Simulated scan of single mutants.
Amino acid sequence: MAPQCLDSSWPESPPGLVDGKFGHLPAQEGARRRLTSRPQALVGECMKEQCGDVQLEPQECPEEVVEGLQPGAFKNNYFFNFQILTDGDLPKSTDSLDANHLQKLIQLLESTDDPLIQEQILVTLSNSAAFSDNQDIIRNLDGLSVIGKMVSDSIPKVKEKALNALNNLSMNVKNQEELKEYIVHVCREIESSPLDSELQLAGLRLLTNMSVTNNYHPMMTHSIPYFFHLLSEGNERTQIQVLKVLVNLSANPAMTRHLLGSQAPSLLSLFDNCINKDVLLRALVFVTNLNKNMKNARGAIIQDQYNEDSIFSVLFGDSTQYAQKLASLLHHPDTEVKEQVIKIITQQ
């Protein structure tokens, strides 16, 4: 049985897609099959992949893909005093944007220095990227590099909108191949952003999508210690998002040593009945994956390699606190939590 990924069921499955629930799919191969061109036009709850917590994170309204252009995005023949686009140039809904419309938006994004205009274009491109055909069109128009440059902008709001757009565009294998060049920079942005900020969350969302397969995990290795810092210091939103990345990394056996060697003395504080279920369940899946990888390593992982504050020592050392925490969680009111705890206990 492969290490598991957390997944959420689709709000409504487009034709050909399969509903799913927590932790029953092969980790990387399942994600690889689904990271392909497919219908993605949903209004309502965010679209989320079945494996690896891949999610499509729309702009401006965290729980829905906006149908239509953002309110106030266009004034005086669109985008304030810019005359490049006329009233008849753009349709009312982002699902009706064709290659010509998208090209004009990308050209305007590249030519303007006005941050308000940049934000509005990025919002529109992000929403249009909810549709798989547009993901390919934007890539073919060199839109990925134009949007990617915005990640280096000095204005946090522009960076955030650019990261959200790249996040939606990353729901595509070919796009991911081009977007990989931004991973290290995104990791730096996450580390330098204010704790729990929207900018930091936008960066983590993009890493969540980029970590659904093993291909780009090595590029995130140096940020693993900071991920655990966020897990310790961040609020619940940050904890959930960074755990999505950590769960994806833990599904890759090649990342096990890097994860086990990280210092996370506060990890066990998450194993508590009063912790938010979304945080707790992901923390348990993370540990389940590490347990599975440890068993498969068959003694190749040596205890002397890790210090007393490492995840290895916390989970696999001579601590009784860990066992006590697991025993207490057997009385958790949620069935999924109890099932995950039982998996961990039976792995030992």
Rank of each mutant, 00 (worst) to 15 (best):
L231I: 09
F80M: 13
V151C: 12
V186D: 00
K180C: 09
F316S: 01
Q239W: 03
F82P: 06
N273V: 15
T335M: 12
L231R: 04
N76L: 07
R298G: 10
F228H: 04
A251L: 09
D272L: 03
M219P: 02
L259V: 07
E236G: 08
A264N: 07
L207D: 08
G16T: 08
N209P: 14
N289F: 05
M210S: 06
S250E: 09
C187T: 10
G30D: 12
D7W: 06
A41T: 10
Y216H: 10
S266R: 07
T86A: 13
S211M: 00
E45S: 14
V158I: 11
I147D: 00
G88M: 02
D19P: 08
F227G: 00
N81M: 05
L207Y: 06
N296I: 11
G52W: 02
M220A: 05
A129L: 07
L243Q: 00
Q50E: 11
I147M: 02
P62S: 04
R32N: 10
V43R: 06
N307D: 13
F22A: 07
T346V: 11
N296G: 07
H229A: 05
Q55H: 14
I240M: 12
L260K: 01
N235S: 10
Q176K: 08
N172F: 01
Q176Y: 12
E233N: 06
Q55R: 13
A323I: 11
F316K: 01
Q70T: 09
S154Q: 12
P58R: 08
T335N: 08
E64A: 15
F82N: 15
A99Q: 08
G317L: 06
K104Q: 09
M220Y: 07
